[in-house]
Nucleic acid binder design. Structure first.
Length: 968
RNA sequence: GCCGCUAUGGCGGAAUUGGUAGACGCGCUGGAUUCAAAAUCCAGUUCCUUCGGGAGUGUGGGUUCGAUUCCCACUGGCGGUACCA
């Protein structure tokens, strides 16, 4: 048997595939363990070395629990609907389903190359009709339910209809779009269409006009998390707010439960904080202000009712319904101008400038407490969608209100005395109330309660809780997504497509462009007309399929339900969920929402989908640049020349083929991206250095792939190279480099296949784990991978001697050898459970180093080591395990058991410190008492040297730990 | 601005409830082997040093016999979020 990693990888990967080694069954008496990876979107650029970090970690965990005797579910699939495939289709004419199939196959190949123990028989693909049939079914269920706040759960729409027929909205506490008040009689008189509109106000999947993030360039609506800094995350196009008729999911109904659920799960504090933030709960009061000369009231939400006496003006959002009613004749021009200005402002303008703007409506509100008349303004800093879209402005106690008041010359009345709280900002809810009648002298929290009670007693409002989270816009005017399972009748009443008619498949099309915000599906007229009904043409966002996929893996081929009851009762929930931190908020939150909805329906047994969450760190790579300068030759000619990054302006240069001159850097010079594959990373004077070698330039001229083609066009921009020579006499240019996220566009993605082909999958797996804690971001660097490779070979050589023959003996292991083994078992077992994989790799190295020193070749020690390393190095361990006589796969071989007795020592080495500084160590028997240790230590000759001429004030002895002499 | 994470040799990183800081690996230095190189093996490698020792875990303070670990204040880096009333 030879240490030939390529051969071992191929041999065992083929074996596992053929024998379906990783197939998981639902019928078993073993306990379950469910390890899930966030499934990838199969992009055209394939996997880079950043992706597998999480996959390897979860694979180790899966293999560990499998060996520990659990029935492990460890599946992988594809989040295959999405914009890039559609954009690619628009650009190239290749149908999204074709490019998706190609990319999916490539991803799977790459994952198989890593030796990941996925059960591919359970793989899912969100764009597969057999899958999205159930995505549509779930959304149909959401459409068919409303949220009963009294029962605190979703209930069928039919039960709402019964309630409305029986008693109207009386006694109804439901999550809703607009507050509605109806009697049973009124409801009874309604026609079908009117009733449908009423129900739409309550449905958990509902259609309404909402302000959405409209992206003109992509021709679609984007979710909040798809927008970054006022531009689309994908493609970086401008985004504006636009009112549109859209389908939404009523996530706000679940806000409180999504918050409460965070206490049940094992997520990092940081992640919980992000979710908390996103939901953004704030407690305050809804207050009605009368409007001078109007019948209507102005409702505002405030978290600081205690400051109501400091209200010197009101602000309503420019989009507020009352703007036109309130505006007086003489202010109309000013208001119209302002509205016009706001309409022209994009989200990006608003955020980047952050200036104080607004306009006076001419109307006045009346403060319910002191009857003061306060002017009503409109201003863009008040948002239509938060609270009531109107505020009472208290410039003395709010930064934005203060800036506004200063700009518009409005009075400021102090109502909170903060002198007792030095350093407190206006945001802190502390201080003593002044100038506020009955609240004077109260501390802020007390005053908030008092004011709220008074407001309620006066019938002027009520206690209210507000959430920052918005309902989830769930419509996309795009092709490559699940069609909404909705059809409209001739009265334009939406109906759910019956389960028997699912899935609603996409029509065949060859032009996927959206025009003027209309879905490309609008052009599929044959498809739209379905009998006497008209199909909905909006599709769902990418998050639709990924919200519930963890359930489908439990029972992927069930065609009678999204998941079978038996399957979900057995698998319950995900024990460990591993994925990138970029999905920490939206994806997790949305799938928690769907899970809670399904829980209300009694379809899943647990309240939360993911018990424990691990966010792997991002792996960055060097982005390197080659520098272009101008060679000004002695004859006055200018030649663009490639130079080292450290070549200074004015340096004399002699370039072969051009001649002598000196370097000029001007605006036409600069740096050009250099594909990482042509860059050599070396270490010079302990500093990392990136070089472009002459041989690599030659290679770039020869090679026939995208990076090389790009690089050739770049290199044509320079006439010649001002090479430097290294120690070996090879020509090179020094490059500059910075760290950045791996991406195809930056030409710095490293393909895991390349590493596996060179070092083997086991080495790649262990090296990625060895880089550091899995949850921390780190730069990719191959320096160090040789160390892991050397370790694996040394490990192998413990088993296999000269002549490639097994050299394991059946002799009794020594005490020392057993101690090494059991130290390792303890460490690896504990660290896998802590998800500390880097320290496991170190522990294997330490144990091997120790055993090699002991010249150990005992089966009783080495065989358990093979079982221990199996999760990390599945190929090599499988080979060794079979060679040692194992008949079934090592990946089902029992996890070695730790025995404390092998770690028991006769004596313990104590550090001896003087005033906390360790000076020497001494050995004492394990059972030595505090007194014995102190006496023997004092008697020690070396100790006496340190104690000479000093008074011992105190001796600290911690048995089994250390001794400290306090001297003075 | 707010929230979260983070800071340890030339580098990646390790260190149990506060108890020998720098495990393990890379790199580097020296040696063995070799015609030579690669590979492999052995030894050394935090810094300073007058070779006695001294300093040292982003900075400044504190608690403690003892602090990388706990507390307070600050600084840098990364991520999230953004006029949220």
């Amino acid at each position: 048997m030879k240490f030939d990693v390529q051969h071992l990888d191929q041999k065992w990967q083929a074996y596992w595939k053929e024998h379906k080694t990783y197939r998981t069954l639902n019928q078993t008496d073993k306990p379950k363990y469910y390890v899930l990876d966030m499934f990838p979107y199969p992009s055209g650029s394939g996997l880079h070395v950043g992706h597998p970090l999480g996959y390897i970690g979860s694979d180790i965990v899966a293999r560990y629990w499998r060996q520990a005797g659990y029935n492990v579910l460890h599946p992988m699939g594809f989040d295959a609907f999405g914009l890039p495939a559609e954009q690619y289709a628009i650009d190239t004419g290749v149908h999204p389903s074709e490019s998706t199939a190609v990319n999916t196959a490539r991803y799977r190949e790459q994952m198989e190359r890593l030796g990941l123990s996925f059960d591919w028989d359970r793989s899912v693909n969100t764009s597969d009709p057999n899958y999205f049939k159930w995505t549509q079914w779930i959304i149909g269920e959401v459409f068919d339910h409303w949220y009963d706040r009294t029962a605190d759960k979703a209930r069928p729409i039919a039960e709402l209809v019964e309630h409305l027929e029986r008693q109207g909205t009386d006694g109804l506490d439901a999550a809703q779009t607009e507050p509605l008040s109806l009697t049973a009689a009124e409801f009874a008189e309604m026609g079908e269409k009117q009733r449908s509109d009423v129900l739409m106000n309550y449905r958990l999947a509902f259609r309404s006009v909402s302000y959405v993030n409209w992206c003109e360039a992509l021709g679609t609506v984007l979710a909040n998390d798809e927008v970054k800094d006022g531009r689309s995350e994908r493609g970086n196009h401008p985004v504006e707010q636009r009112p549109m008729l859209q389908w939404s999911l009523r996530i706000t109904a679940y806000a409180e439960r999504l918050l409460a659920g965070l206490d049940e799960v094992d997520y990092s504090e940081g992640l919980k904080a992000q979710q908390l933030n996103w939901i953004g709960k704030s407690t305050g009061a809804l207050v009605h202000f009368d409007i001078k000369g109007h019948d209507g009231k102005l409702d505002i939400f405030t978290t600081r009712p205690d400051t109501i006496y400091g209200t010197t003006f009101m602000v309503i959002a420019p989009e507020h319904d009352l703007v036109h009613t309130l505006t007086t004749e003489d202010q109309r021009t000013i208001i119209d101008e302002y509205l016009d200005y706001v309409g022209r402002r994009s989200e990006l303008d608003r955020m980047s400038e952050n200036r104080v703007t607004g306009a006076f409506t001419g109307a006045y509100a009346i403060n319910p407490f002191n009857k003061a008349e306060v002017p009503i303004y409109i201003a863009e800093y008040v948002l239509k969608d938060y609270g009531t879209g109107a505020i009472m402005a208290v410039p003395s106690d709010d930064d934005r209100d203060k800036r506004f008041a200063q700009k518009f010359g409005i009075d400021i009345v102090d109502v909170v005395d903060k002198t007792d709280y030095p350093g407190a900002t206006l945001k802190d809810k502390v201080g003593r109330i002044i100038n506020s009648d009955f609240m004077n002298g109260m501390e802020v929290p007390e005053a908030i309660d008092a004011a709220t009670e008074r407001i309620e007693a006066m019938g002027r409002g009520e206690r209210q809780i507000n959430y920052r989270i918005r309902d989830l816009v769930f419509s996309r005017q795009r092709y490559w997504g699940e069609p909404w399972p909705i059809e409209y009748d001739e009265q334009d009443i939406p109906h759910r497509v019956p389960t028997a008619d699912l899935p609603v498949e996409l029509p065949e099309m060859d032009d996927f462009r959206a025009v003027n915000g209309a879905s490309p599906l609008e052009r599929a007229t044959d498809w739209i007309q379905h009998g006497d009904r008209r199909r909905e043409t909006d599709t769902m966002p990418a998050t639709a399929g990924s919200n519930w996929y963890y359930l489908r893996y439990m029972d992927p081929n069930n065609d009678g339900a999204f998941v079978g009851t038996d399957a979900v009762d057995y698998w319950q929930d995900v024990d460990l969920y591993v994925g990138g931190a970029e999905h920490a908020v939206s994806h997790i939150l949305y799938s928690r929402l769907i899970h809670k909805f399904l829980y209300d329906l009694g379809k899943v047994p647990t309240r939360e989908p993911y018990k424990k969450l691990l966010n792997q760190g991002m792996i960055g790579g060097p982005i390197s640049y080659i520098h272009l300068g101008i060679l000004l030759t002695d004859d006055g000619q200018r030649h663009p020349v490639w130079v080292s990054s450290d070549t200074a302006e004015g340096s004399p240069l002699e370039v072969p083929g051009i001649g002598k001159g000196h370097l000029v850097l001007d605006e036409s010079t600069g740096r050009r991206l250099t594909p990482l594959r042509f860059v050599t990373e070396t270490s010079v004077n302990n500093e990392s250095s990136f070089r472009l070698y002459h041989t690599d330039v030659e290679e770039a001229q020869r090679l026939d792939h995208q990076d090389a083609a790009y690089f050739r066009t770049i290199l044509q921009q320079g006439a010649a190279f001002a090479w430097s020579l290294d120690k070996e006499g090879r020509q090179y240019l020094e490059l500059s480099a910075e760290q950045g996220k791996m991406s195809k566009r930056k030409y710095n993605a490293v393909n895991p296949d390349d590493i596996c082909n060179r070092y083997g999958a086991d080495c790649f797996r262990m090296y990625e784990m060895f880089l550091g804690p899995i949850d921390q971001a780190k730069p990719w660097s191959v320096s160090g991978i040789d160390g892991v490779y050397r370790f694996l070979r040394r490990f192998w050589n413990m088993f296999v001697g000269d002549g490639d023959r097994l050299r394991v003996s059946d002799d009794e292991p020594s005490r020392e050898e057993l101690k090494v083994l059991h130290t390792l078992i303890k460490k690896v077992t504990e660290d896998i459970e802590k998800l500390s994989f880097n320290t496991c790799v170190s522990a294997f190295m330490v144990a091997s180093n120790d055993l090699i020193k002991l010249k150990c070749n005992k089966r009783a020690v080495l065989e358990p080591m093979v079982r221990l390393i199996a999760p990390f190095a599945p190929h090599l361990s499988e080979e060794l395990y079979r060679a040692l006589g194992g008949t079934e796969s090592v990946h089902y071989a029992a996890w070695p058991e730790f025995e404390e007795r092998h770690l028991v020592e006769d004596s313990i080495t104590y550090p001896i410190a003087f005033n906390g500084k360790t000076r020497l160590t001494l050995d004492f028997p394990v059972e030595a008492s505090r007194q014995d240790i102190e006496a023997s230590a004092r008697a020690d000759a070396q100790v006496q040297v340190y104690l000479e001429g000093k008074a011992v004030r105190k001796v600290i002895v911690v048995p089994k730990r250390m001794v400290n002499f306090v001297v003075g």
